[in-house]
């Protein structure tokens, strides 16, 4: 195991030095450059507001790892987010970060990208933000094929407001506003966005960050509207209300929902939701659609400023 390392203060704003923070790579993480993504963090915004066991931090860290391989600093990268637990993570990255209104990050991102096509714009949204209040903007952004990378954190519930029903809550699951179990069918976000015209559509999980990292990297590379739905877990509300166990238990339940690796998990504990109405459906993972057609900026003849 490597010795704990102190990240150069000048590259991340010096706050960690003021706070006396010593940064160490994760125990057992021997990969070259492990921990280097931490230089992209905005330490002055810490401590973060994610709950213990929440999957969002896992996904966010994976995003930073991919970004750290590509960018020294994030001066030309804008993160645009809406409202919700997932959207709050953009505040923790040292970039141009825009925490917008509920459901509308894609509208702000569309304006920003058209105004400054040379910027790389990443949209972080949640299942409530992106599929309920912001569902209209999601399908129109996909239809336009504007060159944005949209990562939708799907935790199947409204976490920030206290565990209410989401349009992604699985049928039968309990939430604070579905006390008799959800009567509705959840959205299949990937199918929706593909049908609307997105040219890169993928689904990943907080359970398998390496897969997510590969997908996120491909989404960043893709020219056009790229959409990555990533399944993460809300332990405090979804997990607890449905008695699905702690964060680790929920990660295993994600694994069970992944068709490709389901057989590997025969020896893992089987989760029995109480009552057993709410069962995570088996979902397709990976890159589900990839195609090429002119982006909105290309069609409009917008080239942006030279870097």
């Amino acid at each position: 195991m490597q010795a704990p390392m102190v990240v150069d203060g000048t590259s991340i704003g010096g706050d960690e030095q003021q706070r006396g923070v010593t940064l160490a790579p994760c125990p057992g993480d021997e990969r070259p450059g492990a921990g280097s993504e931490k230089r992209l963090l905005r330490y002055a915004m810490m401590p973060h507001m994610l709950c213990p066991g929440c999957g969002h931090g896992i996904v966010f860290e994976a995003m930073l790892r991919v970004l750290a391989e590509r960018y020294e600093t994030l001066d030309t990268v804008a993160f645009v987010a809406g409202i919700g637990c997932s959207s709050r993570v953009v505040g923790y990255v040292d970039a141009c970060t825009l925490h917008t209104t509920h459901g509308r990050p894609l509208t702000f991102a569309t304006g920003l990208k058209l105004a400054r096509p040379e910027l790389d714009v990443v949209v972080v949204t949640g299942d409530g933000d992106g599929l309920s209040i912001g569902g209209n903007h999601l399908i129109h952004a996909a239809r336009r094929n504007i060159d944005l990378t949209c990562v939708l954190f799907n935790n199947e519930i409204y976490g920030m407001t206290g565990g209410q029903l989401a349009p992604t809550t699985i049928t039968g699951a309990y939430t604070s506003t579905s006390p008799a179990g959800n009567h509705e069918r959840p959205f299949d976000a990937a199918k929706l966005v593909e049908a609307a015209g997105a040219t890169f559509v993928a689904r990943a999980q907080s359970y398998r960050t390496q897969v997510f990292e590969d997908i996120f990297a491909r989404a960043l590379d893709h020219k056009g509207f790229s959409f990555v739905e990533v399944m993460t877990d809300c332990t405090e509300y979804f997990g607890r209300t449905n008695r699905l166990g702690n964060g680790a238990d929920l990660l295993f339940s994600q694994a069970r929902a992944e068709q490709a690796i389901e057989t590997d998990l025969a020896e893992r504990p089987t989760l029995t939701p109480v009552p057993p109405k709410a069962v995570r459906p088996v979902m397709e993972m990976g890159v589900l659609h990839e195609s090429r057609r002119p982006t909105l900026e290309e069609a409009m003849g917008l080239t942006g400023e030279q870097r």
Binding site: L98, T100, T107, F108, G111, L114, A115, H137, M300
Partner: peptide, 22 residues
Amino acid sequence: VFIQMEDEIASMGAVLGGSLGG
């Protein structure tokens, strides 16, 4: 840049994004 958005909420969001772009 001229863009017709999907509704007025989106229009105003895009205006603010464009403005932040300078």
